[in-house]
């Protein structure tokens, strides 16, 4: 780590005042300190925002849930009300990192975390995202990268929470300068598609205040496949949320992570599913729609069948069926 200053903000106003052009916010620290240690990020100042008032609450509102920016992932995973109301959220939280990471890491930090691309994070490689000339992953080791790859930087979204929150149509409440506004979860990574230097749609010194989920309860599920059983990044993650009217799907939304710089959601797939009977064929056709424009690279073609399987399984899981244990 290069030298930096440290300050603790006690209000959003204070935080913004303390956070200059070359400075960054610090909450759980598990993401940013990794970057600083590798000299990937060299902030002049870290502004501790863990103490901003009201940002450590999980509140059930009249219309849904409000999760404060500094709620830890462990607090989400252990919250009984959320477990009953939105089980997929609990599942996604429980798969974040390790117990220690979950105890430290915050919701906002999970959403705003930076690329885990092994070129971007490497102290001795200057990749496109780091201001270098080329995207090494595109030409070389891209096993863990995006299969939606028609953009400059192919490092995928790795946040579990973003995937389930997108399926739940959540929005992120952000403070920018004097203004406060909402970004839909689905749009939270959009800028990263076009702009290779961006990790998400936040601008420097944008401060996440809270995340709002517009439903009080909903069937939802989160699944991921990793190489290891636990404490490993998802190769593909998938969330589905929706209702079942008998065997018919209602208001179903499917979202995937780790396969694109954005959370992968396809409206056509969601509308295709509307009112359909849940069966293997329907689930597979939805998967086809979602993955239709995938352009896998040399080493990540496996993510296509893997994503397909997770989409099918997530949809069936909404109906309480463990597809992989069913014999066909």
């Amino acid at each position: 780590m290069k030298p930096f200053q440290y300050a603790t903000a006690s209000s959003a106003d204070g935080a913004l005042e303390l956070c200059g052009k070359n400075d960054q916010f610090l909450a759980g620290g598990t993401d940013i300190l990794g970057e600083v240690k590798e000299f990937v990020s060299n902030p002049g100042r870290l502004v501790n925002i863990k103490n901003l008032p009201g940002t450590r609450e999980i509140v059930e509102t009249d219309t849904g849930w409000k999760l404060g920016a500094n709620v830890t992932i462990a607090e989400i995973a252990a919250h009984e009300g959320l477990r009953r109301a939105l089980p997929g959220l609990t599942q996604a939280a429980a798969k974040v990192g390790s117990p220690q990471i979950r105890n430290m890491g915050t919701l906002a930090g999970n959403l705003a975390q930076h690329s885990r691309c092994w070129y971007y994070r490497h102290r001795d490689v200057q990749c496109l995202k780091n201001g270098g000339a080329r995207c090494y992953a595109r030409e070389s080791e891209n096993k863990y990268h995006s299969i939606f790859s028609g953009n400059p930087c192919i490092s995928p979204v790795v946040s579990n929470m973003a995937v389930i929150l997108a399926a739940l149509e959540a929005s992120v409440n952000i403070r920018r300068g004097k203004q406060t506004f909402d970004i839909k979860m689905a749009e939270f990574y959009m800028v990263a598609w076009f702009n290779p230097y961006a990790h998400n749609s936040l601008k420097p010194a944008d401060l996440i205040l809270e995340v709002n989920i517009p439903v009080k309860t909903r069937s939802c599920v989160y699944l991921q496949v990793s190489e290891k059983s636990d404490f490993d990044w998802a190769l593909v993650s998938c969330a589905a949320a929706g209702d079942l009217d008998g065997n018919a799907l209602k208001n179903v939304r499917v979202a995937l992570g780790a396969i694109s710089p954005m959370v992968q959601e396809v409206e056509d797939a969601n509308s295709f599913l509307e009112g359909k009977e849940l069966d293997r064929r329907t689930a597979s056709m939805a998967a086809n729609i979602i993955l239709e424009e995938a352009e896998p690279l040399e080493h990540n073609g496996y993510k296509v069948p893997m994503a397909r399987a997770l989409i099918r399984r997530a949809l069936f899981k909404l109906a309480g069926i463990n597809l992989e244990r069913e014999t066909s």
């Binding site: 092994w118 070129y119 490497h122 001795d124 290891k228």
Partner: peptide, 21 residues
């Protein structure tokens, strides 16, 4: 990495050791 010549996973994040689970 054949392109840059570096060890791409000089860490326990991507050099994966078996864990408890």
């Amino acid at each position: 990495d054949s392109l840059s010549g570096v060890v791409l996973n000089p860490n326990f994040e991507n050099y994966k050791l078996p864990g408890a689970q």
